[in-house]
Structures are given as structure tokens and as C-alpha cells.
Design a protein around this nucleic acid. Structure first.
Lengths: 341, 341
DNA sequence: CTGTTAGCGCATTCAG
DNA sequence: CTGAATGCGCTAACAG
């Protein structure tokens, strides 16, 4: 039989209130009776009912994690990071991916409306107005957003420093390898991370006195296929780039396919760099030079922030930046200056 | 303000019981009042409180998903599959990975003891006796296990047909490529999937009148490093194998590294095949010939089974097999028979 | 320090 | 068909 607090109380000859106090190490209880009750509870193998406690305390000790789509090792890392921090804070994590039958908004509504979670972590490509409204309503639970855009001061956001990452790798291509003809494959249109990466790329070029060329900036969608199409377009240009900066590793992998299919060599004929430093990047050959994104840390940080927010409702919105680093593979080479001064 | 059933009742001039009936489309309620109440509820943007409902109905509509460790795209697929089915059944999924601070058993105990879940899906490498006891106790919630071992009739198990997969790819290596010297890198010792794969490998050899050679069966642990070590051991043998059947794709990737480091070519000097058909296998070069495991389906099947079990407590334990297929990459070649009869 | 009581929000008897 | 009352298991005042 499932034990209840009542049975423990009877067995220990105390009231249920006392048992409750013992279990929640309430200050006003004698050490002796507390120990005694705890022992009895142990003997009876009593575990407080999660649901009942949630109802009484008006907190569920569950946080929701909404992902844009569950796929790839990228998301596993996020889940892992969130889970680790949540667990050590006594929270459980329920994940909800969006898919054909369920939109992100729907997931959130479900979580918040039924008040089954104390807080939500939203990993989303873009922040729509509908979403803003949704999480701005009074009784909404605490929300932390993982998203490239961070100039929204009203919300708690954990963001990857896409700009810095894109800037630094572009700058590196220019200064250390001597590349000047650098193309970029963008991410999806309304994706904030993608937008920031593009901005970083452009800024680095400009700071190095190179005018970004529209022709060398092509659309992609963060998928392999997208990378393939984009790459084939770049290879068809009369004035070809020397190196392609793909908006993420997936698209870089797509570039690899197309470049190899064209019988060209990397980095001999053309260089490629990516962004994310996914598992894959180390296994394709040549190993991809890419921007490392500490995804586990993103998950952990978001969870920490959320727990902090849940604990302290007056917590001021915070935007936490996660910096990136460059991972050197072998997908680039130093280029010779054609016409030395 | 958060709406409660009480406020809806007042607003509609009915009792809370009637509102409850309307919401749960109870048979004994007039169509008119039901419509009326539903409309009011809609206007007030009322959502029934998840926790309260759980307490009253003694079911949480949450299922737990316990993973051995959260890592790689393998698990993402499982989560995705479970989530999809769970969602369409009106359930939420809380995932718990085991890590340094939390063992699998602890995760399960937590879920079951506090009765915060209606059921649990356990993805575990091996079924320990402790575990068996744990899930056999009377009031344990429904449990479905995802595991290589399936000869335990007392439990509901979804298992990949590792034997068939290993058998078929080994047989394929023998019959279609003409390989006879086939080595195998095992998975972790107490891993049931690994054991089944080894068995399938051996059976295929024997059925083809080839005696399994202990020297060509080396230990691995399903990691890249493990694959590297195992491969280097195989390459050091006087009588080297012609092809290595790695127990999973990760170890196959490890083999790639070592073989290339030795200046050998795949499949020119030595062939390699894997198991799992992870994302990676298509991107390493040459593309890996491997055994496809429909992981998404595993997750979906497990979830379906669990929901069925939750619905019908009398449901007899079932063992569901998920078959595999061979994916042809370019990591093998036909070998010439040295001494044709 | 401990017991009594009143909810938490909802589902579900039992009357009517 | 509908309403009043009871309880799910626990926490949190409020008394004592």
C-alpha cells in the first residue's frame, strides 16, 4: 500500500502536522520527535506524495523545457545541462518539442495555463510578438529564453555571443590565413542567431577595410541540404570566394559534400569554416575549423537563471552572454598574397 | 488572476460539479448547459489546474523517461519518439538522465516513490536484480524497458533486434564481399545490446562454417576511444582481419581514426562496418556501412506500449522487437579469393 | 513545541 | 440531469 502522512502519524502517535514538520525540517520541532518520526517514515518506506504537496504549496517543482524541434546532439546537450542544474535544485524537467502537431506556442500555453510548471525555459529561433504577450501576462510563471537576440531588456535571456563568434572567426580568416574573399551562408531568415552571425561577419570585414559583397552572402537554413544548395551557388559564381563561412556546422557539412562532388579539395581549392562545433565537425575530413559554442553551459546557465527567478520573484531581468571560441581544424590554409607590394 | 472552477461556476450560476462535468464531457449533463459552461470557461480563459486534477484523479498524466546518460543524437531520437506519442495521448514527458550525482535507480525511485508519474520508460544498458525488485513491487507504476535483453517475460520490453542486425551484416560481409577474416569489437561488458550483437556475429560465422577466433574479438565500450584502442590492438596482430565489425558507429569512427593514422586506407587495406546508423556514419569518409536502428520507432513503440499499459492495468507483459536493416556505405570492398579451387 | 483546522482546486459520490 | 458534500494528501495558519 502507498503510505500516507496520516499512517505515519498514527504509527508515531503524533498529528499529521508534526509529521509534516519533521519532513520539511521545520524549525519548530524538537530534535527528538523529528528523529523519531523520520525513523518511522523510513521504516514504513513513506514518500510524500508529489502531487498533494504541489497542490498545497502551489509549486510543482517542475520546469518546462521547450525546444524548437528535438533533433541532433545539439539539443541533447541543452537538455543535459538543464537537467543537471534542475536536479541539484530539486526540480524535474519536462521537455516538449514542437512538431507537426504542436507549435511552440501551444507547448508554452499548455505548460503555463495549467500551471503544471514553476517555470519555463524557451529555446526558440525568434521571439514573436505573440510570444512576448504570452509570457508577459501577470500570472505567467518564470520564463527564461535561450535565443540569439538579447536586446529585449524585459526578459531573462541566455544568449550565445554569435556576433563575437562570427566576428572573430572572420577576422581570423583575414589576419591569420590571409583570405580576403570570404563568402557567408546565412541561417534561416527570421532566426536571431543567424542574423547576429551575419552581422559579426560583416563587421569583421568592414573593420578590415573590406566591403561585404552581396553576391557572396547567400541564404541557407541551417540544414545540410541548405548548405549544399548555397555552396553550389557560390561555386557557380564567376568570381569565386576563397573560403566559405557557413552559418553552422550542418551547412558546412553540406558544403563539404558539394565541394568534394565538384572534385575540389578542402582547403586546397577552397576553405570552409562553420559554427557550433558539433560532434560532427571533428569527424568530417578534413576536420572543420569552426566556432565552439558551449552548449552544455547554455543549458546550465538557463536553468540556474530560471531557478533563481523562481526563488526570487523580484529578480530583475538579466541577459547573460555565453562567449565562444575558435576551434582550429584543417579546413583552411594560408593563402599567398598574389601581388605583394 | 488565475481562474478556478469555482469562479466559472459562479459566473455560470451552476455548481462546481456541473462545471466539472462539462469539462470532462461527462455523459450526464444536458447539451445546452454544457455548451454554455464551456463558453463561459472560454471567456474567462479558464484552464483546469493540473495539479489539483492529478490529486483528485490520482493520475498525473506525466510519464518519466530515464536515460543512461544524455548524450549524442541517439537519445534525442528516443526522446522525440516518446514525446510525440505521449503528446498525442495527452501526456507530458519528464526526462532524467543519470550522471555523476544521480544513478538510474535513484531516478526511478524518485519518480515512482513520490508517485509523480503514471508510468516510466527505462532505457538502460542492463537489468540488474535491484532494478527488477524495484519495478516488481506492487504499487509500482507501469514500466516499459528499452533494452537489448528480451528473455524476461515478466516485463514489458521494447528491444532492438541486435542479434538479427549483427547476424545479417556479418553474413553480408561473408557472402557479398567475400570476407572471411572478420573481427568484432564488443560493447561494454554488462551491456545486453552488446552481448546480443556479439552472439549474432558468432552465429553468422558458424553458420558459414567459420570458427569464431577469440583473437579477433576484442573489448570495447561503445566510445570512440574504446574503438581506437580496440582497433590498434587488431592492427597489431600478426594475422590481421580483413574487416572490422565495430559494435557501434562510435567505435567504428574510432577505427577510422586509427586506421588512417596508420596510413592505411578504408576499404582498400581494411574494411569497417558499424551498428546504429547514427548521423555520423554518413559523414565520415568513406561513408560507413552499418546497421540501421530505427531509434525514433523504438521511442514511439515504448511510449505506445506504456500508454496502453497505463490504460489497461491488466495488460500482459509484452516484448516487442524492432528489426534492423543494413545501410551500405563505402567502407567495404569485395575481396578476391586467393586460392580459387 | 504540538495538535486542530482549514484550505489547495478538482472529481466524484450521493441525494434530489 | 444538477447540487451539496466529501476527500485526494499535504501544508500552513492558528491555537494551545
Amino acid at each position: 500500500m502507498k503510505m500516507t502522512i496520516k499512517e505515519v502519524a498514527e504509527r508515531a502517535n503524533v498529528s499529521i502536522a508534526t509529521v509534516s514538520r519533521a519532513l520539511n525540517n521545520h524549525p519548530k520541532i524538537s530534535h527528538a520527535t523529528k528523529e523519531y518520526i523520520l525513523q518511522i517514515a523510513e521504516e514504513l518506506n513513506y514518500k510524500p506524495n508529489f502531487t498533494a504537496r504541489s497542490l498545497a504549496k502551489k509549486e510543482t517543482k517542475i520546469i518546462g523545457l521547450v525546444l524548437p524541434e528535438i533533433q541532433g546532439d545539439f539539443f541533447t546537450e541543452v537538455i543535459k545541462g538543464v537537467d543537471q542544474v534542475a536536479h541539484s535544485g530539486g526540480y524535474h524537467v519536462v521537455v516538449a518539442g514542437s512538431h507537426s502537431e504542436r507549435s511552440i506556442v501551444e507547448s508554452i500555453m499548455s505548460f503555463m495555463g495549467e500551471s503544471m510548471v514553476d517555470g519555463v525555459i524557451l529555446m526558440i529561433p525568434a521571439i514573436s510578438d505573440q510570444l512576448k504577450e504570452l509570457i508577459s501576462i501577470d500570472n505567467a510563471p518564470s520564463v527564461v529564453i535561450i535565443n540569439g537576440k538579447h536586446d529585449i531588456e524585459d526578459f531573462d535571456i541566455v544568449y550565445i555571443d554569435n556576433f563575437q563568434g562570427a566576428y572573430s572567426i572572420t577576422d581570423y580568416l583575414l589576419k591569420n590565413y590571409g583570405y580576403t574573399k570570404i563568402a557567408h551562408i546565412k541561417g534561416p531568415n527570421k532566426n536571431n542567431d543567424a542574423a547576429e552571425r551575419l552581422a559579426g561577419y560583416k563587421a569583421a570585414l568592414i573593420d578590415n577595410n573590406i566591403e561585404p559583397l552581396e553576391e557572396w552572402i547567400v541564404n541557407g537554413d541551417f540544414t545540410i541540404k541548405g548548405g549544399e544548395y548555397a555552396c553550389s551557388r557560390l561555386l557557380s559564381l564567376r568570381d569565386k570566394p576563397e573560403v566559405i563561412f557557413a552559418g553552422n556546422d550542418m551547412m558546412a557539412a553540406g558544403c563539404y559534400r558539394v565541394i568534394k562532388a565538384h572534385g575540389l579539395s578542402i582547403p586546397g581549392d577552397i576553405g570552409v569554416v562553420g559554427f557550433d562545433h558539433t560532434f560532427l565537425s571533428e569527424f568530417i575530413s578534413p576536420p572543420l575549423t569552426t566556432v565552439h559554442v558551449p552548449i552544455l553551459e547554455v543549458g546550465k546557465t538557463a536553468a540556474s537563471l530560471l531557478l533563481e527567478k523562481i526563488k526570487n520573484k523580484e529578480h530583475k531581468p538579466e541577459q547573460i552572454k555565453i562567449s565562444t571560441g575558435i576551434i582550429l581544424g584543417k579546413s583552411c590554409k594560408k593563402v599567398l598574397v598574389e601581388n605583394p607590394a
